[in-house]
Simulated scan of single mutants.
Amino acid sequence: MTIKNTLTATQQRTQFYMTYSGNKPNRSVKESRLKQLEVDLLQQNIFMDELFPQKQYLVLEQIAFWLSANGLCKVGTDTLEEKLGVSVRTVRNAIKALKSTNQFVVGRLQSTKTNCGKYIIVDKKHENFKSIMKEVFLLSEVSITQLNAQQKILKDLDMSTFEQENKSPNLYLSLSNSKQAI
């Protein structure tokens, strides 16, 4: 079985898992997870405030708070927009940055007719990660392993593209010009 580009799950499975996991969001767990994310990003020479500038960080904080309960949250762009007073673009950029960390799986909520426009976000570092993927997305152990491998390959490709772009002569010239200005 191959993994689709976007994982989808039904409202009933997602809500059932969230309701019966028995945990509530916890601020200290959220802070700990954000600190862990920051440390992991620094090891890759990525700064948290560059990846999640100002309002995008607010979106990240809210999602991390909801994830602190059981490693799974479902949320719509409109909910985050209203709750945090940010734009749709800010929410979408924050979700895109969240995906790029390779520490979260971002899927979509589906109805019988169409996607509902809501995200399902799963924390890959949470202790319940495998059970969430099995129970909510109905993935097998092999599929979960494939998902992790595919995301790692895509991330490696993104990093190699980034490194190639950074080796371009124009970037070198702009960097040397900025050093001369200082």
Rank of each mutant, 00 (worst) to 15 (best):
T8I: 07
L173E: 08
L41Y: 01
L42E: 00
N166W: 15
S160A: 13
K30I: 00
I95D: 01
T8S: 14
G107T: 03
W66C: 12
R27E: 03
A181W: 05
L58Q: 03
L154N: 13
Q164A: 15
Q151H: 07
S28W: 05
A97D: 04
N45H: 03
E82A: 13
S140G: 03
G76K: 07
F52M: 02
Y57H: 08
T101G: 04
E81M: 11
L51F: 02
M159E: 14
L42K: 01
S21C: 02
I182R: 09
A181C: 04
L84H: 11
L147Y: 08
G85N: 09
S178N: 12
Y20W: 11
I63F: 02
I144R: 03
N115D: 15
K96W: 02
I144Y: 08
N115Q: 15
E82N: 07
S131P: 08
Q146E: 13
V122M: 06
Q54V: 04
A94S: 10
T114S: 15
D40I: 08
D156P: 06
Y119V: 10
K30Y: 01
Q15S: 14
S32R: 02
L72C: 05
Q15D: 09
M159N: 11
K55L: 06
N26P: 03
G117M: 06
L42W: 02
S176M: 15
S178C: 14
Q43N: 09
F16R: 12
Y172I: 15
K30T: 00
N115R: 15
S140E: 09
T145D: 09
D158S: 15
N5W: 10
A9L: 09
V29P: 01
S111R: 12
T101R: 09
V75N: 04
I120A: 00
I63P: 03
Q150A: 05
K4P: 15
L109S: 05
V59R: 01
D123S: 14
R108I: 06
F52K: 03
S32V: 02
E81I: 04
N148W: 03
Q110A: 14
I144S: 10
G71S: 11
Q15R: 10
N26Q: 05
G22V: 10
G107K: 01
L41R: 05
K55C: 03
S131M: 13
E165F: 12
Q12P: 04
N102F: 02
F16M: 05
S111T: 09
P25W: 00
K113N: 15
R27W: 01
F162V: 14
N5L: 02
V59L: 06
S32C: 03
S87F: 08
